[in-house]
Structures are given as structure tokens and as C-alpha cells.
């Protein structure tokens, strides 16, 4: 055992990178769920983003075009879900699962011929002066820009939900769609926009995987990251800041576990791998039992189908 070989500063920095894809996808899903829509298709949207971002980045040599296209492509398939659940009023759980199935299949078809291709590098930006600060410099200011963009997006979502009128409308729609309708808000339109945002964010998360974290395309490469993002939203009790904490915790447990193994610490990997899920259930129990339903922050209309005539 050689714990001294673990450098905590480097460890925290790599936890942040490991958490970025799920953080991006979960931020999108948070908005979607806040509007009262449960989209279980995150995995399908992520992998669509991963492949489309990869194909465009590899084709144009520009990773940023790749990210943009990934967001667009995932947004497009999220709208299939949106139209079926919002306009045609089908069940969200079943449609979301269908979206995952469809996305996994479609991505493999799109990605044919892209195995073994190297994407253009996403440069790590060393911010002058800031990245030279001891400890904090390496942790905060020595990443690729997507890490910072994901942090900014979390802040933006927090501001949006807490301080803007649009955020208020979104929350109202998610809390009680009939009341929101009575107040004159367009429930379906708001939800479609939330779904589209969720799709775009999942696409970015997927592209982060294929362009930065793994840098390559392989079939099924998200390997369940979309489902972890879903769990994360619950873990966070639908609060952006907790989402950030949760993402780093989830990513952190994985990275820490790998580092402990590398240092020769004998840990029961199989049982440790269960721990993020068990912890999430525990957190869920604590937040659900200790306070009233409203404080729980769970959108009241989550997974309920909305029709104006009801």
C-alpha cells in the first residue's frame, strides 16, 4: 500500500473531468424534470451526441463544431420524445425507454466506419497567472474549457430557476400544470423547450465523452452514464448546487476507487461500486422524510400527462 502516491490536488482535478459528462446531462435533465417531464432517454440522447459530435469534429477538425452539432443532434431526437409525450400525450416512461433503445441503435449505425479515427484535440487551457496559483490553480484553472462551461451552465440554471420569470413559469408548470394553464401559461410549449434543453445538454455530455474524456468513438461507449445522470438529479433533490456536489461525488467515488486500487489498497470493488446508488437512496429517504412535500422540491406534476381539457 502506498497512499503517498496519490496526489490529492491531481485527484480532485481528475474527479472534475470525470464528472463533467454526467454533470452536463444531469443539468439538462434537471430542467426537464423541473418542468414536470421525466425523460428516461438520457442514455440514448447522450450517445447520439457522442457519435454526432465525434463525426463532425473528426470531419471538420474542429472540436467546437463537434460540440455544437452534438447538442443539435441530441436536441433533435429529444424532440421525438417531446412530440410523442407532449403533443400526442403518450406515457413518458415508455417513450423515454424507447428513446434510449432508438438512440443506442441509431448511434451505432451513424458511427460505422469511425472506429479507430482520432478526433481533433480539445486543448487544455492554462489560464495565465490563475493556473499558476498553488493548489487551486491546478484544481480550478487547468482544464479544458468544457469543464468551465459545464460549471457556468450549472450557475446559469440556478440563476434561471431562482431569479427569472421564465424560471418561475417553468417551475409552476412542473408543480401543477393545470394551475399553470389556468394562469395562462402554455404548458406544452414550456415543456417542449425544457425537453429540448435537456436533449442539448445530454448531447454535450455525450460529446465530452467521445471528444475529451475517452477521445474516440466506440459503440455503446456511454456504458450507462445516462442512467447515472438520472440518479444524480434525484440525489440533488432537483437543486443545481447539489447537482454539482453530487456529480463530483459520483465521479469522485469512481476516480477515488481507481486511485486507491492503483495505490494497492485492498478494497471490495464490487461492493464499493454499489455505494453511489445506495447513498443516493439514503439521501432520497432523508430528504423525503425530513421535510414536507413542498420543501422536497420534487416537481408535483413529474411524469403526469397533461391535456388541456382535463
Amino acid at each position: 500500500m502506498d497512499l503517498s502516491s496519490i496526489n490529492p490536488i491531481v485527484l480532485i482535478a481528475s474527479m472534475m473531468a470525470a464528472a463533467t459528462p454526467i454533470l452536463l446531462a444531469a443539468t439538462g435533465e434537471l430542467i426537464c424534470e423541473k418542468s414536470g417531464v421525466l425523460n428516461l432517454g438520457v442514455e440514448g440522447m447522450m450517445i447520439t451526441g457522442a457519435v454526432c459530435g465525434f463525426v463532425v469534429a473528426a470531419g471538420t477538425g474542429n472540436p467546437w463544431l463537434g460540440f455544437a452539432f452534438a447538442a443539435l443532434a441530441a436536441l433533435a431526437i429529444s424532440l421525438i420524445f417531446g412530440i410523442i409525450t407532449q403533443v400526442l400525450m403518450a406515457n413518458q416512461v415508455a417513450t423515454g425507454l424507447g428513446l434510449t433503445l432508438f438512440g443506442l441503435g441509431l448511434s451505432a449505425l451513424i458511427g460505422q466506419g469511425y472506429q479507430g479515427v482520432r478526433p481533433p484535440r480539445v486543448p487544455r487551457i492554462e489560464i495565465p497567472y490563475l493556473s499558476d496559483i498553488p493548489v487551486l490553480g491546478r484544481i480550478l484553472f487547468s482544464h479544458d474549457p468544457m469543464v468551465h462551461i459545464s460549471l457556468l451552465l450549472v450557475v446559469a440554471v440556478w440563476v434561471f430557476l431562482k431569479f427569472t420569470r421564465a424560471g418561475l413559469i417553468l417551475r409552476a408548470v412542473g408543480e401543477n400544470h393545470h394551475a399553470a394553464h389556468a394562469l395562462g401559461y402554455r404548458v406544452v410549449r414550456v415543456r417542449l423547450m425544457a425537453i429540448a434543453f435537456g436533449g442539448a445538454m445530454a448531447g454535450l455530455g455525450g460529446a465530452y465523452l467521445s471528444l475529451v474524456r475517452v477521445p474516440q468513438w466506440t459503440e455503446g461507449m456511454t456504458a450507462g452514464a445516462g442512467w447515472i445522470a438520472l440518479a444524480l438529479v434525484v440525489f440533488a433533490a432537483w437543486r443545481p448546487w447539489r447537482l454539482l456536489l453530487g456529480a463530483y461525488l459520483f465521479g469522485g467515488i469512481v476516480v477515488l476507487q481507481l486511485n486507491l486500487q492503483a495505490a494497492g489498497v485492498r478494497i471490495p470493488v464490487e461492493y464499493l461500486a454499489m455505494s453511489p446508488y445506495l447513498i443516493t437512496i439514503l439521501v432520497l429517504v432523508i430528504i423525503s422524510s425530513s421535510r414536507g412535500r413542498n420543501a422536497l422540491n420534487a416537481p408535483g406534476s413529474l411524469n403526469r400527462t397533461y391535456h388541456a381539457s382535463q
Binding site: 502516491s5 496519490i6 496526489n7 491531481v10 485527484l11 481528475s14 473531468a17 470525470a18 459528462p21 465523452l209 474524456r213 475517452v214 474516440q216 466506440t218 455503446g220 461507449m221 456511454t222 456504458a223 452514464a225 469512481v254 476516480v255 481507481l258 486511485n259 486500487q261 492503483a262 495505490a263 470493488v269 464490487e270 461500486a273
Partner: peptide
């Protein structure tokens, strides 16, 4: 604990390099 999990393999590689 997987034959194929690109993200985790990448993280494992990073952890090994850091150590």
C-alpha cells in the same frame, strides 16, 4: 470489473499515470 467501459478505462489510465 468490465471488459468494455471506455470511460472507466480512461479514468483508470489517468489514475495510473497520475500515480
Amino acid at each position: 470489473y468490465s471488459w468494455f467501459d471506455p470511460a472507466q478505462e480512461a479514468d483508470a489510465a489517468t489514475a495510473l499515470i497520475e500515480q
